[in-house]
Design a protein around this nucleic acid. Structure first.
Lengths: 123, 123
DNA sequence: TGAGACTGCTTGACATACCAAGCAATATTT
DNA sequence: AAATATTGCTTGGTATGTCAAGCAGTCTCA
């Protein structure tokens, strides 16, 4: 079944705000999210705040972003297993890659690096 | 200063699909996402697919959900800098490669395959 | 050559998250 | 008490993600 059956992120967020004892407009000031939207979220009129909104709220309420995402019914990264991906599985996920194609990729990567010897991959 | 400056998740998704060599409707069948939306995403008309959509696409393309989220400009749970990024571990048989290099490889493979493609058209 | 099955893509309609502006009720200040 | 500020909330409008339906181009095969 679906995750978002009777998720009540609104009530949760409201309890967080009540605990902090701050007003909707205070949250608005700190997050940039309008008090109108905040009200709608807490009352359930907005069922699924955007990830960006949840991120801001997580920030000021001091709760994990992922938790809000989950409570909002968004898919959450399956963080448990399979994190270190093997190169083999990677190639597998690309579908059928022929030996020729793989060799061409290797060659191309070599070409890229010979042309771009400059250090890091920092973006 | 928003994160989503020049995000091109569309091109990335298209390269993944090209690599797999499957059609939009094939992706539609496997994910339930309409080919219309898929086309719009890949062409950039839809800049920010919903997390749910990204999750489905990550599933069939075998790419980490988090990566698609990040490329779509969504906030992503804080991740350590040196963490083995899936995109890197992808080709780690070839040694560590950067995001940019991987993208270039994907593009190149897409190009290789586009030479003996079948069907499809362009308007 | 022609019919049918593909392909990518466009359009119209719909859902909903979001904001600005404004409202009534309560709290605070003068 | 009167004036002002603050609070939660509602409303109108905008933006955008999504889908169903349909179109023209391309391929396949009889």
């Amino acid at each position: 079944m679906d995750i978002d059956e009777k998720i009540n992120i609104g009530a949760y967020l409201k309890s967080l705000r009540d605990i902090k004892g701050i007003s909707l407009r205070e949250v608005e000031r700190k997050t940039g999210v309008s008090n109108a939207v905040l009200s709608q979220i807490e009352s359930g009129q907005v069922k699924r705040p955007s990830p960006g909104t949840l991120f801001k709220l997580a920030g000021i309420y001091g709760v994990p972003y992922e938790e809000l995402m989950q409570r909002a019914g968004y898919p959450v990264p399956a963080r448990q297993v399979g994190e270190p991906q093997s190169a083999q599985s990677v190639f597998n996920r690309l579908g059928s890659i022929s030996q020729d194609e793989e060799q061409q990729l290797l060659d191309y990567l070599a070409f890229l690096r010979s042309r771009n010897k400059r250090g890091g991959n920092r973006k």
